[in-house]
């Protein structure tokens, strides 16, 4: 099925254009509609970092070096995940106008929305690099290992797409999935190594670096961006398999439940 989708996309040349168009419009809707505009996209992670910095560094005296950067990279990855999952639970409802009158592939709606989130992520990532290189006192600078960020982001993208597909298609038959997912994400947030040092995290929650699909991505992102080492390959491969498995489940959900979206929503 995946092969067919890919072939379908390559053969018809306006699809990439369309994805980009939809992503741009989505991005514009999100950030240019309010007064603060794009500034808001940049301000939010900074404010989050400020809060967690005060709590964990000033109050709880965390001993993680370069803690602000440590938080920064963890939070932008987490925010991308949450925006792409919680933010898309009702996507089949809000984007109904796209599939209600044509035989457009619904998967395109998801991919374009995630592209739009990726634009936001890219801005934040550039901000992180600037911050880490020019403002962070304990910075080790960046090296060629930064290229590992590309497969890591791909991994994050697949994971988010999979979870987003599962949730939004469950929404067709269970409207309260968004509330359930909100509780679940706040739980997952504290079970992810976002503000704990890796050592504390592994001791307190053994095997959670494997059980939690987002934990490995954050751990590896810090390795390649801040510690200038290779990623933990075992963890990287495991997370890819995890993400692809969830994507597979998501595609099944889209076929089974999503196809009825037009009549049920």
């Amino acid at each position: 099925m995946l092969l067919k989708i890919v072939k379908d996309w390559v053969s018809s040349s306006n699809k990439l254009e369309r994805l980009w168009l939809l992503a741009k419009i989505e991005f514009k809707l999100r950030y240019y509609e309010n007064k603060l505009g794009l500034l808001w996209a940049l301000l939010k992670p900074i404010m989050d970092i400020g809060i967690y910095y005060v709590v964990f560094k000033t109050v709880l005296k965390s001993d993680v070096p370069a803690f602000a950067s440590f938080l920064f990279i963890g939070l932008i990855i987490w925010n991308f995940f949450v925006e792409s999952t919680t933010g898309t639970t009702q996507i089949l409802n809000t984007k109904k106008y796209l599939y209600e009158y044509s035989n457009m592939n619904k998967l395109e709606i998801y991919v374009s929305t995630l592209f739009s989130n990726s634009i936001g992520f890219f801005f934040n990532f550039v901000m992180f690099l600037l911050f880490y290189n020019f403002l962070e006192k304990e910075s080790g600078g960046v090296s060629a290992h930064i290229l590992w960020a590309i497969p890591l982001f791909l991994n994050l993208f697949i994971l988010s797409l999979g979870v987003s597909l599962i949730l939004s298609n469950l929404y067709v038959v269970a409207k309260d999935i968004s509330q359930i997912w909100q509780v679940f994400t706040s739980f997952l947030f504290f079970l992810s190594p976002i503000f704990y040092s890796l050592k504390v995290f592994k001791e307190a929650l053994p095997s959670f670096d494997y059980g939690n699909p987002i934990a490995g991505i954050i751990i590896n992102a810090r390795r390649v961006l801040m510690q200038q080492t290779y990623p933990d390959y075992e963890l990287l491969i495991w997370d890819f398999v995890y993400a692809i498995f969830l994507l597979f489940l998501g595609l099944i959900a889209l076929n089974k439940l999503g196809s009825k979206a037009a009549e049920k929503l």
């Binding site: 254009e17 369309r18 809707l29 106008y97 009158y101 044509s102």
Partner: peptide, 29 residues
């Protein structure tokens, strides 16, 4: 490609006329 037309479907009320034209046109291939 197919297009189903009855009164007013296929357009997002959050978008401008220009954006709707581009989105619909693109969806139509």
């Amino acid at each position: 490609s197919t297009m189903l037309m009855n009164l007013g479907v296929g357009m997002s009320h959050e978008l401008t006329a220009r954006e709707n034209i581009y989105v619909s046109g693109s969806v139509l291939g």
